[in-house]
């Protein structure tokens, strides 16, 4: 599935937050990918030293053009380069797509429950955008836990969803401070949030949970305790110690 390294070029950037940047890459011969898959990136220093990391794709491919979003990790080895140094036109090696489990296929008729913690929104946004691009009417619900309104990725799309997103409900759940006038007291995702804004287990939704390890552990436990079949809960954890 994952052929060798391809040389991509940075075609555009979009800053999502103060610490996260979307990279638009042109990858000649890109074979296409499923929503939820990731790519491996490889950087090579002048002395031949190499570093590789995996990043989730944030949108369906448009021909040879792919998008991924990188969260800058303080003291990281790779993410500061990708978010601050890499310039439009620069080459970068890409391998993929990778991952065949944490994926949503538009042909799957089950309702979808997406639960994102922070940067875990990235592969889930690829699912929302794929739904829109394919004209799918599969019912989606997205619960997105984030610290403050300033930490919202894809803010324009998630605050004012395009017409194609009818039937894809977005709930923002702030952990530190919410927008003015919001009634929910800022808190970590809890069972009541999932019960109120998710799908009941009887609907047998396909559940996708992505975020930092502790968040994913907590959210997946909430889902199974609410009665969701563990086999319908797919998780993807952003390992600490990366960068």
């Amino acid at each position: 599935m994952a052929a060798g390294w391809r040389v991509a070029r940075l075609a555009g950037v979009h800053d999502e937050t103060a610490t996260a940047r979307t990279l638009v890459l042109d990858v000649p011969g890109w074979p296409g990918h499923l929503a939820g898959q990731h790519v491996d990136l490889q950087l090579t220093a002048e002395d031949g030293y190499q570093a590789q990391r995996s990043y989730s794709l944030s949108a369906p491919a448009r021909g040879d053009r792919i998008e991924l979003t990188v969260q800058r990790v303080p003291d990281g080895e790779v993410s500061p380069y990708l978010t601050e140094v890499l310039t439009i036109g620069d080459p970068i090696e890409v391998r993929g797509p990778v991952g065949g489990w944490f994926v949503w296929r538009p042909a799957d008729p089950a309702p979808v429950l997406l639960i994102a913690g922070g940067a875990g929104i990235v592969p889930l946004m690829a699912m929302v955008r794929t739904r829109r691009a394919e004209g799918s009417r599969t019912p989606f619900r997205l619960l997105y836990s984030l610290r403050t309104p300033a930490d919202l990725y894809y803010a324009e799309e998630l605050r004012r969803p395009p017409a194609g997103d009818a039937g894809a409900d977005v709930t923002l759940l702030h952990t530190r401070s919410g927008p003015p006038g919001s009634s929910r007291i800022p808190a970590r995702l809890n069972a009541e949030d999932v019960e109120r804004h998710g799908w009941p287990p009887e609907f047998e939704p396909a559940c996708y949970v992505c975020g930092p390890t502790g968040f994913v552990e907590a959210a997946a436990d909430i889902l199974t305790k609410l009665g969701h079949d563990p086999r319908r809960v797919r998780t993807e954890r952003f390992g600490a110690g990366g960068g």
Binding site: W5, Q42, L43, A45, E46, Y49, Y81, D90, E93
Partner: peptide, 13 residues
């Protein structure tokens, strides 16, 4: 060795 990424140094060796 892959193509050199301009300005990438990596962790101190």
């Amino acid at each position: 060795m892959g193509i050199v990424s301009p300005g990438f140094h990596g962790r101190p060796r």
